[in-house]
Amino acid sequence: MSAPTTSPPAPPPARAKRRIGDVLFRGSTQVAAGIILVALAGVAIFLTAEGIPALRADAAHLAGESTFLAYAWPLLFGTLLAAFIALLIATPLAIGVALAISHYAPRRLANLVGYVIDLLAAVPSVVYGLWGANVLGPAMVPVYRWLSEHLGFLPLFAGPASGGGRTMLTAGLVLAIMALPIITAICREIFSQTPRLHEEAALALGATRWEMIRMAVFPYSRSGIVSAVMLGLGRALGETMAVALVLSAFRIVSWDLVSGTAPSTIAANIALSFPEATGVGVNVLIATGLVLFVITFAVNFSARMIVARSEKGLVR
């Protein structure tokens, strides 16, 4: 323990000195927080200023749609659908993996796996995309075919199944795998920070391991889990290259997860259309970026509200 006494104590007029140090330190943390404010404001101003002309764009720059909303809606739909699938898959998996690492696995294995999973956050998004398009997609083709044959009555699996596996479900899976390391790493760290005494108390009362986790670990880490999932969501919503590479993207609204005609996402659409966009077309794309920004804002806001409500009365 690095007790403060081991370092040279402050010179005699401790009171005055202390206050200066505190003021400086506090000030610098506030400046840092202020920088975030400025950066975010900068991004927001940039997006808004560049995005506004899109509202007046004509059909030529909106792929034939008459209004910007009509243009952006299918993309928004695709973005939300892909992110939803990704989180649906990634969250339970990530919590499971994090629990396995923090509470189930032998320490040596846990360390190793934790390390490997951290590394997967470093795999370039391009590589996820290439892997998704060249390995995962083709491997999933039989599954998609099976789904569309046997569960085709559900709109989700209406098909016809894609011949190359470049479907919404593949994109969701790739996003889930991309979000997994982030969610896992943070959850793992939080789970392992649960006060040991709480855990032992639960066990001593005769709780099974799962009951201990449910009663001691989860309440303690709820806010952290939500933060982790939000970070994962951020990645899933904003992921550009991987989706662009994996998805057979169209600007449509479709619930079909296994067909090759899949709704595109905002970020992927920006990446695909930006190089050839000129004039107002660029503004249109940036405006879709603004939409994504606002959506993330809304999703985060509601998630925070929910957590705040459920945490009321829960003493840390």
């Binding site: 900068g42 991004v43 919503l237 904003g238 990446a271 970026g289 994504l292 804002f297 806001f301």
Partner: peptide, 14 residues
């Protein structure tokens, strides 16, 4: 939280 949602390409454009 909002900042986590900035799409990477938007950060580049910014």
């Amino acid at each position: 939280d909002v900042m986590t949602g900035i799409p990477s390409i938007v950060a580049g454009l910014f």
